[in-house]
Design a protein around this nucleic acid. Structure first.
Length: 97
DNA sequence: CTCATGACATTAG
DNA sequence: GCTAATGCCATGA
C-alpha cells in the first residue's frame, strides 16, 4: 500500500496544529515509505499562496531548513507563539508528536 | 538509460 | 558544538 506519497505528506502537513512544529523526518515516518528528502521536495513544489502550513516544518535539529523562505518562516512561527532560543532553535515542547 | 540534484537524517570524527 | 561522508529516491536534463 503505497499510493501517492505526496498526498500523504500534504495531508499530514495540514494536520499540524497552530503553534506546534514537526520535522521532515517525522512526517516521512508517518507516511508509508517517504523519505525526508521527498517531504522537502513536496514542500518546495507547493504553489505560492496555498493554505498549507509549510512553515511548521523544521529540521531534526530543530532549526529552520536552509531555503529562500526561511526568514518569512521564522516570522510566521513567532507570530503563532513559537519561541526560539538564543541559538535560533525551537523548544522541544513545541514539537508535534 | 545514466547522471546530477536536493526546504533532509544519521553517523563518525 | 561542528563538518564531512553516506543513505535516500523522485525528478529532470
Amino acid at each position: 500500500m503505497k499510493p501517492d506519497l505526496r498526498e500523504q505528506i500534504l495531508t499530514i502537513l495540514a494536520e499540524i496544529p497552530p503553534g506546534r512544529v514537526t520535522t521532515y523526518g517525522r512526517i516521512a515516518a508517518m507516511t508509508d515509505g517517504a523519505t525526508p528528502r521527498l517531504v522537502a521536495r513536496a514542500l518546495r513544489d507547493l504553489p505560492t499562496g496555498h493554505e498549507l502550513p509549510w512553515f511548521r516544518v523544521i529540521t531534526a535539529s530543530r532549526k529552520l531548513a536552509d531555503h529562500p523562505g526561511a526568514t518569512e518562516q521564522r516570522e510566521r512561527l513567532i507570530a503563532e507563539g513559537v519561541l526560539f532560543d538564543h541559538r535560533g532553535r525551537v523548544a522541544k515542547d513545541r514539537l508535534w508528536p
